[in-house]
Design a protein around this nucleic acid. Structure first.
Ligand SMILES: [Zn+2]
Ligand SMILES: [Zn+2]
Ligand SMILES: [Zn+2]
Ligand SMILES: [Zn+2]
Lengths: 137, 137
DNA sequence: ATAATCTCTCTAGTGACTATAGCTTCAAGA
DNA sequence: TCTTGAAGCTATAGTCACTAGAGAGATTAT
């Protein structure tokens, strides 16, 4: 049986975050010691490891909840799990594309200023006037 | 003189957001009509246009506040403005790089599943076991 | 036994908005 | 002028995924 601190060290999830996940019903409330402290078994260790990995990959809590529910039904088809992962991949790609447009614009802006005074600063001018931009953001 | 709705339409910033910016002291409280409604001049239109553009480029409110303060002193050197823009460019690039690592991992995961049942689902397995990943995230 | 560390609950704060409720004001048509 | 409907007002709470802090109690090591 693990204390919350030990579970935290093993998973890399911070102690207050574990308690937050319990509140959000992402993990079920574990057993308690005589003195009311949480005591975790390997089942919870594995579940929290799953959650951590999914969060690190950028999945939202709701998506993770769905995936956890699905993994509790091993005989069901896995199309829903695949769809969740694919949707997240698509969203990630869209986010990358958007950030790349911003990157191009920011590069143009930062390299355009010769470091004179504010009244001639190309950074300030560019922010004041979107017409100087190459792209629609 | 513009009402808040007209200002919203001209800038693309939603009405509640304009009021929020006023609360955050990003824009100063404008004049009021006899009936206590906000009335904006072109000064505020330009300022809000600047803010909108900076937000669209991903700058944080605090950075925008600094840039607005700087642009009020036209004779000062502009190195601080350049630094803010460059810092944001660096942060944007880091974010892109991180998302690209996630994208690669998600692509591997989503293409790895042949759509069988949950107990054989490669999506679920990958989330359970970071050792299957190619990269550290 | 004592000290150091951990854990408990509860509340509030973060960033940048968004939504709702219940009210008042404004502008335009009849 | 009266009326109606849109727009605006304030204040409060909700979003997401945590993070910080206070003040009390539990556990562990010496
Ligand atoms: Zn400059
Ligand atoms: Zn632009
Ligand atoms: Zn699958
Ligand atoms: Zn991984």
């Amino acid at each position: 049986m693990l204390s919350i601190g030990e579970l935290s060290r093993k998973t890399g999830v911070k102690v207050p975050t574990i308690r937050y996940y319990e509140q959000m019903k992402l993990v079920t409330a574990p057993e308690r010691s005589e003195g009311n402290q949480r005591r975790y078994s390997n089942v919870e260790l594995e579940r929290l490891t799953f959650i951590k990995h999914a969060r690190d990959l950028g999945l939202k809590i709701d998506a993770i909840r769905e995936l956890l529910d699905l993994s509790a039904h091993p005989e069901q088809p896995c199309e829903d799990a695949n769809r969740i992962a694919e949707d997240h991949l698509v969203a990630t790609r869209e986010r990358i594309a958007q950030l790349q447009r911003l990157e191009a614009e920011l590069m143009r802006i930062t390299t355009g200023c010769q470091g004179d005074s504010i009244k001639d600063c190309y950074v300030i001018q560019s922010l004041s006037d979107h017409a100087l931009c190459q792209d629609g953001h």
